[in-house]
């Protein structure tokens, strides 16, 4: 046990007497905490040995490119889930953003203008989600984001006037979404950049601490003077912006916008966050969880593709994994409860 403060030394001796059961428990807790990354590494190891073509630079680069969209949108979804929320609209939001980007490209082919259009569209839908949820006093964000899931998809279909693909994206966006640098997809760097930014914000800034506080105990956060409404709205805006970034990556890779993009992306991103090890109950998790979860989904999809497994089974597999991940979250809470009881018995 690592002791951070000298004054703790006195306590440590009293802890030593009843060490046995607690160390067993904390070992389990630690295993559960490390679970996702260990499982991911094992999965990659097994696939590398058993599936030909899996562990080749080209395929790995493919996985990164295919995972990038899920990963970047999952980063935003993760912040929303941290505050006990959920954003079901991210997929439709992404589709709408690509359609608006493609429309803007017809009017103005400047890459920055097109990119800004997609980001603004994503952020705007996110802002609507957050504002209606908080100021409409809705019982759960499920409702408003389910509504915007429908509205954004409908708008995207309407605006694309029956075209399932709207070809044409500025060169710069195509390079960002589809190009590679030294064999590594550029989209990977975008994801890394967004992840780093959000990591810094969430872990070192007051606002990030507030997100965890709101997710941990919303009522207490209010009583402690934290601007709970503002914090919640901000997470939906960021989730929307992340969907906008996902739109840039996907539109860039395909050099097109489409109202059909992002289908079931809400499922993939929520799954990524939960599989990665963040808690669905809010307040727990970090950026790494969303990334690990996204890569895991990407790896599983890719392997099933390489093994020529029917795409339907991929959906089933992802669903099963979600159940397992949530179950391990429940188990973790149970173990913590046990630990608390032991803790109380020991301190006396």
């Amino acid at each position: 046990m690592r002791l951070k403060f000298a004054w703790n030394a006195g306590v440590a001796t009293s802890v030593a007497s009843g060490k046995e059961p607690v160390t067993g428990l904390s070992l389990w807790l630690r295993l559960l905490g490390a679970g996702p990354i260990v499982i991911l590494l094992l999965l990659i190891g097994v696939l590398a040995l058993s599936v030909p073509m899996f562990f080749t630079p080209r395929n790995l680069s493919n996985i990164l490119a295919q995972t990038a969209v899920i990963a970047v949108v999952a980063l935003g979804q993760h912040l929303v889930i941290l505050t006990r929320g959920i954003d079901l609209s991210v997929g439709s939001n992404l589709a709408l953003a690509t359609v608006l980007g493609a429309l803007m490209f017809r009017v103005n082919d400047n890459a920055f203008v097109v990119m800004a259009t997609m980001l603004a569209a994503g952020g705007a839908v996110g802002a609507i989600n957050g504002l209606v949820y908080v100021y409409g006093r809705l019982p759960h964000p499920f409702i408003i984001t389910l509504a915007t899931l429908s509205i954004a998809r409908g708008l995207a279909l309407e605006l694309s006037i029956g075209h399932t693909t709207m070809r044409g994206m500025p060169e710069t966006i195509a390079v960002i979404g589809g190009g590679t640098t030294y064999g590594i997809p550029n989209s990977f760097f975008v994801v890394a950049g967004v992840a780093t930014l959000l990591f810094v914000v969430a872990k070192t800034m007051v606002w990030g601490r507030w997100i965890y506080a709101v997710g941990g105990q919303p009522d207490a956060a209010r009583r402690m003077g934290i601007p709970v409404n503002g914090v919640i709205v901000s997470t939906y805006v960021i989730a929307g912006l992340c969907a906008g970034v996902g739109a840039v990556l996907l539109a860039g890779r395909t050099e097109a916008g489409s109202p059909l993009y992002g289908n079931l992306l809400e499922l993939d991103t929520i799954a990524a966050v939960i599989i990665g090890g963040a808690s669905f109950l809010g307040g727990r998790g970090h950026i790494g969880h969303a990334l690990v979860g996204a890569v895991m989904i990407g790896v599983i999809r890719n392997a099933l593709n390489l093994l020529n497994v029917n795409a339907y089974y991929q959906l089933i597999a992802i669903g099963v994994i979600i159940v397992l991940a949530v179950q391990s979250d429940v188990l973790r809470n149970h173990l913590e409860g046990r630990m608390r009881v032991l803790q109380a018995a020991r301190v006396q």
Partner: peptide, 24 residues
Amino acid sequence: VYQDLALFDNLTPAQNFFCGREIA
């Protein structure tokens, strides 16, 4: 000190102390 304590389970004691009044 509220009856329900108004503590944040997911934070450490030090983080709890300063929640809403962070030194920053």
